[in-house]
Computed example of a mutant assay.
Amino acid sequence: MAKQVVEFIRELFKTDGFIPLHAPTFQGNEKRYVTNTIDSTFVSSVGEYVDEFERKLEQFTHSEKVVATVNGTSALHTSLYLAGVATGDMVITQALTFVATCNVITHMGAEPVFVDVSPVSLGMCPHALDEYLQASARLTETGCIHIATGKTIKAVVPMHTFGHPVELEKLSAVCDKWHLVLVEDAAESLGSYYQDKHTGTVGAFGALSFNGNKIITTGGGGAVLCKRKEDGVRAKHLTTQAKVPHPYEFYHDEAAFNFRMPNINAALGCAQMEQLPVFLANKRRLAAHYQDYFENTQFQFVKEPSYARSNYWLNAVICPDTATRNELLTTTNDAGVMTRPVWQLMHRLPMFADADRGELTYSEYLEGHLVNLPSSPVTHFS
């Protein structure tokens, strides 16, 4: 059936040429706004577009405070720093994620711990999280302690896989029970909602990404979503080298980060935000076409959870077996239709091979069965 899938995707995207997995769309004010920054000479981290981009994100997500950063990785780093993660701590995340999630934990001097994902969301499973904690942790006056090592388990970082929101209410309940800080890796989920709440706004902090392959792009960029305004004020301070405002003096009151988004990138982001509702509508139409096509086939199309509204950042199918997955990947890519498998699980990478982990049954199943399909927000769907 792989050849029929190629034909179907070519008909969807109406091209005989190469079809990327997810390409950016520039059909608005991108050139005009970027040219404005060049003409103004304010292309770095001071400029009106940075403030405007943050305001647009606050209005769209209903986050109390948004701070734009240079990329999604730095946004997650800032979020974990604000959550109090320190050297020697442990942070629980999912094995099925992009490597940046775990790199940030490591670069902070902490250790990742891996739990399984849920068939409901493809993101962190609340039952797997609670089962791991029941077996491996205990609560003390100083916090949640890992029994085997005596280290503090500080935070939990679920990732909204392919834009599908995790079961946030259940995860929040587990975090509250074990006195853990919930930090959402919302890199892939701008425009996704858990019930009526935008992803990244349920936990104490959330991290967005605006890489070139995301639903909107600033070239490279990210943002920290803060549940409390005072945390947003501190995030902005930390990401600008902790410089104390002054007309000309340079005084910094703590060791901080150079993570602020440049004005020229924010200009691109402002133009993209103007088109975001159209991108979201077109991506949902694309997902509906995929869902209809794969209905009653050997492939299971990945649908949004019943409690959520997904941005369908990357569409995906689950194949009946690994051989079928491999055939689909080979046939599509040989035909110039880009598909990809899910990431290799984090504990299979050499730098995380010794990380503690719970049972990863469903993560391992997806690793051998899932294929992502072309998902660019094209505009010709009706």
Results as ranks from 00 to 15, higher is better:
residue 123 G to N: 01
residue 115 V to Y: 00
residue 110 A to N: 02
residue 141 E to T: 14
residue 109 G to R: 09
residue 123 G to Q: 00
residue 119 P to K: 05
residue 93 T to H: 00
residue 110 A to D: 05
residue 96 L to R: 02
residue 95 A to W: 05
residue 104 V to S: 04
residue 102 C to V: 14
residue 127 H to I: 07
residue 139 L to P: 08
residue 83 A to I: 09
residue 127 H to W: 10
residue 106 T to E: 14
residue 96 L to M: 10
residue 98 F to P: 06
residue 132 Y to T: 03
residue 125 C to G: 07
residue 95 A to S: 06
residue 112 P to K: 00
residue 117 V to Q: 04
residue 110 A to E: 00
residue 121 S to Y: 07
residue 85 V to F: 00
residue 112 P to Y: 04
residue 136 S to E: 15
residue 95 A to P: 00
residue 122 L to S: 04
residue 112 P to E: 09
residue 127 H to K: 11
residue 119 P to Y: 07
residue 84 G to R: 08
residue 139 L to Y: 10
residue 139 L to K: 14
residue 102 C to T: 13
residue 86 A to Q: 15
residue 114 F to Q: 06
residue 105 I to N: 04
residue 101 T to C: 11
residue 84 G to N: 09
residue 105 I to K: 01
residue 81 Y to I: 13
residue 115 V to K: 02
residue 91 V to M: 02
residue 112 P to D: 08
residue 103 N to G: 10
residue 125 C to F: 06
residue 95 A to T: 07
residue 108 M to N: 11
residue 117 V to H: 02
residue 132 Y to G: 03
residue 117 V to D: 04
residue 103 N to V: 11
residue 138 R to T: 13
residue 126 P to I: 03
residue 138 R to G: 11
residue 100 A to T: 10
residue 140 T to R: 12
residue 103 N to D: 14
residue 103 N to E: 15
residue 127 H to E: 11
residue 91 V to L: 05
residue 130 D to A: 11
residue 99 V to Q: 08
residue 90 M to S: 04
residue 135 A to Q: 13
residue 118 S to K: 02
residue 132 Y to W: 10
residue 98 F to S: 12
residue 119 P to F: 01
residue 106 T to H: 13
residue 117 V to G: 00
residue 128 A to S: 09
residue 93 T to K: 00
residue 104 V to N: 04
residue 128 A to E: 08
residue 117 V to C: 00
residue 133 L to K: 01
residue 131 E to G: 07
residue 131 E to I: 08
residue 119 P to A: 03
residue 100 A to E: 10
residue 133 L to I: 10
residue 139 L to G: 12
residue 116 D to C: 00
residue 89 D to T: 07
residue 136 S to Y: 13
residue 83 A to P: 02
residue 114 F to N: 01
residue 122 L to P: 07
residue 135 A to I: 12
residue 120 V to L: 12
residue 134 Q to M: 14
residue 136 S to L: 11
residue 103 N to I: 12
residue 113 V to A: 00
residue 97 T to A: 11
residue 110 A to F: 02
residue 109 G to M: 10
residue 121 S to L: 05
residue 106 T to I: 13
residue 102 C to K: 10
residue 134 Q to E: 15
residue 120 V to E: 10
residue 100 A to H: 10
residue 115 V to W: 07
residue 133 L to A: 08
residue 140 T to N: 11
residue 102 C to Q: 13
residue 122 L to Y: 09
residue 98 F to H: 14
residue 128 A to V: 01
residue 125 C to D: 05
residue 103 N to K: 13
residue 129 L to M: 08
residue 140 T to H: 12
residue 104 V to W: 08
residue 107 H to D: 15
residue 81 Y to V: 13
residue 120 V to F: 04
residue 91 V to G: 01
